[in-house]
Amino acid sequence: MTDAIVANGVELTYADGTEAVRDINLHVPVGESFGFLGPNGAGKTTTIKTLVSLLRPTRGQITVNGYDIKTDPQAVRESIGYMAQETSVDPDLTARENIKFACETYGVPKAERTERIHDLLDLVDLADVANKAPKEFSGGMKKRLNVATVLVHEPPIVFLDEPTTGLDPRARIRLWKYFQEINEQGTTIFLTTQYLEEADQLCDRLSVIQEGEIVATDSPDDLKSKVGGDVLEIALEDPTEDRRTRAQRITRESELFAEGTIETTDEGISVVSEHARRAGTDLLVALRDEGFTMTGFDVRSPTLDDVFLALTGEPAGNKETTGEEPMEPPTEAEVVQ
């Protein structure tokens, strides 16, 4: 079996001593769509920048398309496409010129260029604004142009760093479609994301990363099943502690939810169970019969937060907001860098 990306024991410590990632091990087979899921500051960007040869790992080995990133970075660069988190297009050049420039930097033969540019403009639906400069584009359009510039040399692997962060839902779905298309054509995809939904849509497998370490690697479905099913949240009228505990007990006694996780929340209770969707109404009836009045009711799929909670026992807050980490030193270090 050929692996498109292999990483063994990769560590990266910045000059100021910050350990950005620790002991990263990856085996991504050719043609797979692989995701890195984690909150801000977890080390996703550091990992992807190391894989594309922008950062040199402090320890460990990485091969991409069979090339070692330390000894053969040039071959790695020629064989990959990399889209940074911040959209990277030249605002002064037209959409067509941006793609043409990318063709030139990757040495796409002149004879193929015209057709390639045409096809890429079509793929990202920018043919009608090909001669306009990105200055006039929306965020989603710029990102789409960026996608086109990354694909000019038909790279066997594409690295996408949070490809849809900050985009509206329509733009996001549109981008997902392109990524699915190129993946179906055989392109290996490595992407980072904060959204379980995105990982769910795009990835065959994903690693959950927390504070620089991989805590789990699995298919999206298996990861979600680790959460234990869908989440049912019920808000009660007058949610005193006593009433919430009683509601929790009633739920636990119900046969269907015996396997699930039932917790009290500020407003009422929260149930995680694979039966949450099917048996939700039964539970509501049971609670009503016990004299409860419900003011809110919501069933949803597990989110990144739920996966994190299930895997690590703590919420997936961004580093800056959890308050557990000493805040100031890393923040200052980042500003100085």
Binding site: T87, S88, V89, D90, Y106, G107
Partner: peptide, 12 residues
């Protein structure tokens, strides 16, 4: 505008 990094990743 990110072009600097784009160039660093390109085989230029």
């Amino acid at each position: 505008n990110g072009m600097f990094e784009t160039m660093l990743v390109a085989p230029v």
